[in-house]
């Protein structure tokens, strides 16, 4: 099955995955924030808050938020870097980027730049950013290793990568509940609230196909990062990986 990759539990042509993912996010963009709040019981805000607290970002820093969607992280980074810093909110999906632009405007956040890009080919010079973040986006990237290498390239020495992503829980009980919730409740809620059951079925499947904590840590190190550690959140349902380029 050369030149194929996974799209949820399906095997698809590698070249097709990007457009399939794009279709998913085109269809959920307008309800994205609402669905995040409902499906995670608001916990996604705490996970993102923890990510920002772990970022080590300061005044005048340059920050790139990949797959930034509605801009939750970019808003907080903007507050941290101040007017002398630079925050770029990026996404491969134009509909998500537009939602981000609307969201920031509605919240009175200005000074954030918007760039539509593919994480596998970042249009920036080497050694440019003090921090790169990607929250709930890496699992949708077709070639994750290539994306991690690109992120490593554009980070300055002494800067960090933050990957906030669904992961694997070791708790048997939690896993049972989570599996039931993911495959039985989440798609139904997606159907009721966003009128899109299939996209939330994909969400559940894509989470299961994403590398576990240790595998992702090794991928980060293989991409060139000198250090990488991860912190499990909510029992490992989500993990924050922090890679350091020295």
């Amino acid at each position: 099955m050369k030149n194929t990759t996974h799209f949820g539990f399906k095997q698809v042509a590698t070249n097709d995955k990007q457009s399939l993912v794009r279709d998913v996010f085109n269809s959920v963009a307008s309800k994205y924030n609402l669905m995040n709040d409902v499906l995670s019981f608001g916990a996604h805000r705490l996970w993102k808050h923890y990510t920002i607290a772990s970022s080590n970002v300061k005044i005048s820093d340059k920050v790139l938020d990949i797959a930034g969607g509605t801009g939750d992280l970019a808003i907080e980074f903007r507050k941290k870097v101040g007017d002398s810093g630079q925050v770029i909110l990026s996404d491969i999906n134009a509909a998500m980027l537009n939602e981000g632009r609307k969201n920031l405007t509605n919240k009175g956040i200005f000074g954030v730049e918007f760039v539509q890009l593919n994480a596998q080919q970042l249009p920036f010079d080497s050694n440019t950013f003090d921090c790169v973040s990607i929250a709930f986006g890496l699992r949708n990237v077709t070639d994750k290793d290539q994306a991690l290498k690109e992120i490593y390239r554009i980070l300055k020495p002494g800067s960090c990568l933050l990957i906030l992503e669904f992961s694997t829980t070791d708790s048997v009980l939690l896993k049972k509940f989570y599996d039931f919730y993911s495959f039985n409740i989440m798609p139904k809620l997606g159907g009721i609230i966003a009128d899109n059951e299939a996209s939330y079925q994909y969400l559940a499947e894509s989470i299961r196909k994403h590398p576990n904590q240790e595998t992702l840590k090794n991928m980060v190190l293989d991409a060139g990062f000198d250090f990488c550690e991860y912190h499990n959140l909510s029992g490992g349902i989500v993990a924050l990986h922090k890679g350091i380029k020295v």
Partner: peptide
Amino acid sequence: VHFICANNRIFVLSATDK
């Protein structure tokens, strides 16, 4: 615990064999 100092900031990390 490892203290890593670079780019005018300090990272405090755990568990590394570097």
